[in-house]
Amino acid sequence: MASTVIKYVGRTTDFKGKTLWEIVGSLKNQGVGRIIVRSVFERYPEPSFMKIVKVETCPDEERRRVRIWVEKTFRGRKMPNLTEIYRTSYKPDYKLVPKNEEAQLLASVKEVHHFPEVILPRNIEMPPLMKKFIIKDHEKKGLEVMTDFTMPITYNYSPNRVKRIAKPDEKPTVQFSMGLGTPASPSLYEGVPLS
């Protein structure tokens, strides 16, 4: 057979790897007990991987998909429940971890979470114009003058949240404020006065 020529069509992708069925379909016992990794989650410093627990095939109309249940470890935290993967199983973004690397990966996660904990604040100070506006507004309406210019922050819910939201009387480890903040890459602000 002549060497196959690969021709790319469409747009580039961030995905790297195979679809789940490509991995699972070619393994003994459909890969139950093996460990897979989603390459998108490899951008985090903590290890993220999934151990296959159960595999169910899909009807012929869904030939790109497969329904599997995994023990998921995301960013160094093991999820308490099994996770079902079906909707995302077609994504060509999964990698199989070789058997000789499995033990190392499993050992990298300890029972107790050992990464530094990030506690998110519950409140944020108002922006300056809003403060002035509220003072005027309350004067106009005859309400008592506000002294505490903070407002609660909402966080979107996610089961994969790594950072913790502070309890009522807890000191957060990070602080959000209105304004520019400290730049992540100061080289971009060279010659710009940051006050």
Binding site: M151, I153, T154, Y155, F176, P183, A184, S185, L188
Partner: peptide, 21 residues
């Protein structure tokens, strides 16, 4: 990329707080 990510995240947090208030 990192700087833009930080700025956008900051902005979204601030706006969420204002909107909630």
């Amino acid at each position: 990329r990192l700087e833009l990510l930080r700025l956008h995240n900051n902005y979204k947090t601030q706006m969420r707080a204002i909107r909630r208030f």
